[in-house]
Design a protein around this nucleic acid. Structure first.
Lengths: 137, 137
DNA sequence: CATAGAGTTTACGTAAAGGTCAAGTTTAAA
DNA sequence: TTTAAACTTGACCTTTACGTAAACTCTATG
């Protein structure tokens, strides 16, 4: 019996292209421990299997949602999707997502008040142009 | 007749304390051309007059409003509050403030949609915990 | 077998806005 | 006058998420 066909394994360049990122990014994620060390061909070339790819996609998804790599590192211990530890990772992930929603709400509120301030300030500047006032605080 | 009293001039440390910033910040603003070269005492100590202080406050105000130092640098030519060029600077400033309001609106919109995405994703994760589903996209 | 194209590691560069020494001078107060 | 506190310049450090280059080695294909 043969092993699973080799084309289940992808090299770094192909994987990068597939996901729209660079090889540097993938190596970087490995460097900081977000991706475990992948298997290698005889010469040292990295190969990625389906699990690896899922994990990488997962990382990219979280990143898309605004989770920083550092935050993911805090998860990284429980992060082993490979190990069927998904039941353990999700509660922690929920926690992080919840915190993140809070942060986003906070940012939105800040921006809203910032917007108001800018508009006010704009109004004062405008008045100066009209000669209605003469000082800017 | 005497000149204006010397206590109209402030040294860098005092000014920094007064405005709640560090001396490094003030020197940095000078370094990147946001603040013009101030007058110096015999030994080289920087002294700031009222105009300088107004200008610095103005910079801090804009920064508070989210204008980056780089954006201010683009204004910096017209930036000479000292030179009574305030009539020239304001239209350009209005332009920048308007653009900034637009950017802030854009950010708010982005964050709102991000928020929705996170909440959705959170929902899917939650479902997994409940055993209602088994895959995460 | 030759060679082009990928892959490898190592290591420095980038942007923003200053922080933090270090070594030497000035200023201000006693 | 003496000395502590403040000031000076210069230069390297910080964070985040990679970009980029150098110098090699592998792999794949004609």
């Amino acid at each position: 019996m043969k092993r699973a066909p080799a084309d289940q394994f992808v090299q770094i360049g192909e994987l990068a292209k597939k996901l729209g990122i660079t090889t540097r990014t993938i190596r970087y994620y490995e460097e900081i421990g977000l991706m475990g060390p992948p298997e290698r061909l005889g010469g040292g070339t990295r190969t990625y299997n389906r699990e690896d790819i899922l994990r990488l996609k997962f990382i990219l998804k979280l990143k898309e949602l605004g989770i920083t790599l550092k935050e993911m590192q805090e998860l990284a211990e429980n992060f082993d999707v490979n190990q069927q530890a998904f039941g353990k990772i999700t509660p922690k992930l929920l926690e992080i997502l919840d915190a993140h929603i809070g942060k986003v709400d906070q940012k939105i509120a800040n921006l809203a008040s910032l917007r108001k301030e800018i508009v006010d300030y704009r109004g004062r500047i405008f008045d100066i142009l009209q000669g209605k006032a003469s000082e800017v605080s």
